[in-house]
């Protein structure tokens, strides 16, 4: 995407977001303690956001031709959004980590997370090489066990223990 297109899209997002801020401000419980009340700032921010978003859109539309030219000069693979497996997998992995953390506990979840994440960062195909498998397994298991016990024994911090607890 060219910068112009990015700005246009983010401008639209911010308009929607400011609308959300404004509408949701009506759900705030009124207070009488001070003159401004709890709705004033959110509405002010919503208004400022709207103005700035409009400026952003205005600028991007004004320079639209330039953006077009910029886009044409880009390599094809960068021009549109394509499915990026390591990125999507990393996001899914992080969310999954949060979801299972309380059930599986810190040690297991973190070890699995580290294992997967490292292979997502290592060059494609590393998974098949035994050398990498050994290193990654050792590091991910060792590190999670180490962190868990370090915090439990030395600092008395109870990381979620899960099924091992």
């Amino acid at each position: 995407m060219s910068n112009g297109r990015k700005n246009l899209y983010s401008g639209i997002f911010f308009i929607l977001f400011s609308a959300f801020l404004f509408i949701e401000s009506f759900n705030i419980k009124m207070s009488t303690a001070d003159a401004l009340g709890p709705q004033f700032f959110p509405r002010l921010v919503a208004f400022l956001m709207l103005v700035l978003a409009l400026i952003l859109i205005f600028l991007s539309v004004k320079n639209w031709n330039q953006a077009k030219a910029e886009e044409a000069a880009m390599p094809a693979e960068k021009r549109k959004i394509t499915f990026n497996f390591p990125l999507v997998a990393s996001i899914v992995l992080l969310l999954a980590y949060f979801l299972v953390l309380q059930h599986l506990g810190f040690m297991i979840s973190t070890a699995v997370y580290l294992f997967c994440q490292m292979f997502l960062l290592l060059p494609q195909g590393s998974f098949k090489k035994p050398r990498y498998l050994v290193i990654v397994t050792l590091v991910s298991v060792g590190l999670s066990v180490f962190i868990y016990y370090l915090f439990l024994l030395a600092f008395s911090i109870f990381l979620p223990a899960g099924i091992l607890g």
Binding site: L114, I135, S140, S144
Partner: peptide
Amino acid sequence: SYLLPAVIAFCFVGSF
């Protein structure tokens, strides 16, 4: 590839 995930593991602890 090793360092960043390890840092993230500490970040989990830090956030917690």
